Amino acid sequence: MTEQERLIGKHPEATHILGEWLIHMDQPTTVSKKHRKLEENYTLRRKAIEQIAEWIIEHHIIEQRLEALERKARILQKYDFDHYVESLSLLPSSEVTKKGNVAEIILVEYLKECSGYSQIIHKLRYNTNVEQAMKGDDVLLLNPNNVFEKVIYGESKFRSTPNKQAIEDAVSNLEGNKKLPVSIGFVADRLYEMGNSVLADELMDLQNLLKENRINVHNVGFLLSTKSATPSKDAATQVEKHLDTSNPNLIFISLGLSNPDEIVDESFKLAKERLLSIK
């Protein structure tokens, strides 16, 4: 077992899109550096975009709103329905927000598959301004059958060109007192509203135990950026060069893609098309 596997689990199997599309390499570790390098099988990019588009819809929109759209689609003409969907601002149009959200979504889905843990709620559904990045933990994964087992808490970054600052910013937000998640109370409140008071009560107890450092927390930094033969433009090379942490339970994941902006643009474009084609 590698140190990376100890912290977040094994890379997904090829039966999962992220195991099929992405190739992983657990880099040699030191006390201050644990890095998992991810690259893509470019021939599967379109298949990955199709899945990411589905995740974009799932992470941003609750099931009841989708059901409401289906009802509207049955009674409105196509032209009127398109305008109706546009007026709801269900997905962000801001390029910065879209990039950040895609990085967050990919990291959440990747860690879910590696660890077998759950997100509990989809955070982005509760953003009061869809055009802005939502405050709070980018990734908070727990075992819903035993929330006290371990917490996986992480931060994601998207950069069209990788840089030292992005890596250092992610690491600094996952060290010291910052290594603890801040949104457990928020998640508990949503569960109370849903009527799941048993799990919500457990999360409140978990928050108390985290403050007392009695729960195992594994932290994950993530950089989604470019793959390049030029070291200064290659995500994995930059992480290897600049990753330095005092947190022994921190792993950093790099995902280097050729033209990562295309992944974001095409995934959101397809997600929008699917919303407009609801029947």
Rank of each mutant, 00 (worst) to 15 (best):
K78D: 12
I121H: 05
V139Y: 07
L224C: 08
V130K: 09
S258A: 15
R214Q: 09
N146R: 04
L140R: 03
P181K: 01
S160P: 08
Q77M: 14
I8M: 13
K37Q: 13
A200S: 00
L243M: 07
D80W: 05
G116I: 07
S197A: 08
L174G: 01
D201E: 02
R6I: 07
V171W: 00
L66C: 07
D201C: 03
D137Y: 00
L38Q: 06
P28Q: 01
Y117F: 13
E63A: 15
T29I: 12
Q27P: 07
H11E: 11
T161L: 06
S118V: 06
E58N: 14
C114P: 03
K211I: 15
E202N: 06
E273W: 12
E58D: 15
V151A: 04
S232D: 08
A200G: 01
L199Q: 01
S277E: 10
V31G: 08
S32N: 15
K98A: 07
L76M: 10
L276F: 10
N101M: 05
G100P: 00
V96D: 12
Y153A: 03
H122M: 12
Y192K: 12
N173K: 05
L276P: 07
S115P: 08
F81P: 01
I121Q: 03
E273T: 11
S94V: 08
N216K: 14
E155D: 01
I23V: 11
H218S: 10
I56Q: 01
M134R: 02
Y110E: 11
G185S: 09
F186G: 04
S225H: 04
A188L: 02
N208K: 15
E54I: 15
T237D: 15
D189S: 12
A166C: 01
E13N: 13
L44C: 07
G9W: 02
